[in-house]
Design a protein around this nucleic acid. Structure first.
Length: 381
RNA sequence: GUGCGAUUAGUUCAGUUGGUAGAGCACCAGAUUGUGGUUCUGGGUGUCGUGGGUUCGAGCCCCACAUCGCACC
């Protein structure tokens, strides 16, 4: 995986670039729709490509390992072929699921034991079998197995958690180097920087990761994890200000699981290149729309008789084909089409957002544009 | 026509020995950040069918009427 920086903002740490995988180019800053179990819920690939213009989507190792399972994925030749996407895919390791799903789990130095949320069966992820699993899935970008530390953890707990993640990263990287892709195309891996809200821990995590992987060509970039998990937003931004300046400039930086449109612009301003978040799709399914003029809750009664276009400034076909009143009706009636329209709109908006950001980075006026835009998109309609 | 039962929030219903009403759903809002098509939080929105009576006080007891349901002529 090759990354080229193409522009740097003048008034901030924002940058624009492009990375290349065997399944195509990805222009950064980029937003990556989440497709946990092998589909971006409610959205056709055709629309993802042509309307939303997504360049890369996510899959989740935890979910795909449980279902359809590795035998099926190996037989079909990997997730890309299985879901007929054809563009790059990034897989999360499943560490976050083990952290966030309220199931019986036990995390030890060896790995994490967990019970399936589907049938209660017992499983274990180790750094080694997690590499093997992501090889079987065949993602273009594989994420290291980490422990996601809660945002309100004390420093002692966070230090212990980081140490575990570091040990896992060493073993994960070793296994990664010892194994090859199964399907004839390249797979890159990203270490994940943890350290909760403690600057010293974050620095230690970066030092450790850089020392471990050196300039190994298989390392595609670096991820910042363990943020937007309960800590105040300002602390998240502070951590980015600690981490980004000491990460290598020639590798993309991925802020995992973030976030709101404002979070994304603030992340870009601090040097982040890649984002993923369930918010545009999950919140969309439940009636929340993100627009250039603020946030709309389509379930609100105020849209009952508003027959104006969904989002006159939107670029998706749904923004002009359907009215606010119609989408309101679909949500009230609990029609599945409501979730589809909202997901389509939100993903298109998120992609617009990062594309606009990219333009302003190239123009060198990102900072001022960002401040004004954050105010606008954070308001409520 | 007679007898019995019912009538309380938008709806389905609860409401103790009489002390000016509550629940589920719906509705109205808010939350949701490496996805369990959710979940969570807050809000009661009322001429207790109508009119009288008893009582310090009635959703509750008494009378009449209305409406609905069931049964019987």
């Amino acid at each position: 995986m090759k990354f080229t920086l193409t522009a740097k903002d003048k008034g901030s740490a924002a940058r624009a670039g492009v990375f290349t995988t065997d399944h195509g180019e990805v222009h950064t800053p980029i937003f990556m729709p989440v497709g946990t179990v092998g589909s971006v819920k409610g959205v056709y690939h055709k629309d993802l490509k042509e309307d939303i213009k997504a360049e890369i989507i996510l899959g989740n190792t935890y979910h795909l390992y449980l279902r359809p399972g590795l035998d099926t994925l190996r037989k079909v030749g990997g997730l890309l072929r299985f879901e007929s996407w054809g563009r790059p895919i990034l897989t999360d390791s499943g560490g976050f699921q083990v952290f966030s799903l309220p199931q019986i789990r036990k995390i030890t130095e060896e790995g994490c034991r967990f019970q399936s949320h589907i049938d209660g069966s017992r499983h274990m992820f180790t750094p080694e079998n997690n590499v093997d699993t992501q090889r079987a899935i065949g993602s273009d970008i594989m994420m290291a197995l980490d422990e996601c530390c809660p945002g309100d953890a004390d420093e002692r707990y966070a230090a212990k958690s980081l140490k575990l993640t570091q040990g896992w990263l060493e073993r994960y990287f070793k296994r990664f180097c010892e194994t090859d892709p199964l399907y004839g195309y390249d797979q890159a891996m990203f270490p994940i920087i943890q350290g909760c809200v403690y600057p010293e821990l974050r620095k230690r995590a970066v030092d450790h990761a850089l020392t471990l992987v050196g300039d190994h060509p298989g390392v595609g970039g670096f991820a910042v994890g363990g943020l937007a998990v309960g800590e105040p937003t300002e602390q998240m931004y502070e951590m980015l200000e600690v981490v980004c300046p000491i990460l290598p400039e020639n590798k993309p930086r991925y802020l995992m699981g973030v976030g709101t449109p404002a979070n994304i612009l603030e992340g870009i301003a601090r040097g982040i290149d890649m984002f993923d978040c369930v918010m545009p799709t999950r919140n969309g399914r439940n009636g929340m729309l993100f627009t250039w003029n603020g946030i709309m809750n389509m379930r609100n009664a105020k849209w009952q008789d508003d027959f104006s276009p969904l989002d006159p400034s939107g670029t998706s076909f749904v923004d002009h084909e359907y009215s606010k009143a119609y989408l309101h009706h679909l949500f009230v009636a609990k029609e599945m089409f409501a979730a589809m329209v909202a997901s389509e709109h939100n993903l298109a908006f998120y992609h617009d957002l990062v594309r606009e950001a990219r333009k302003h980075i190239e123009a060198g006026d990102f900072s001022s544009w960002k401040d004004e835009t954050v105010r606008r998109i954070s308001s409520r309609m």
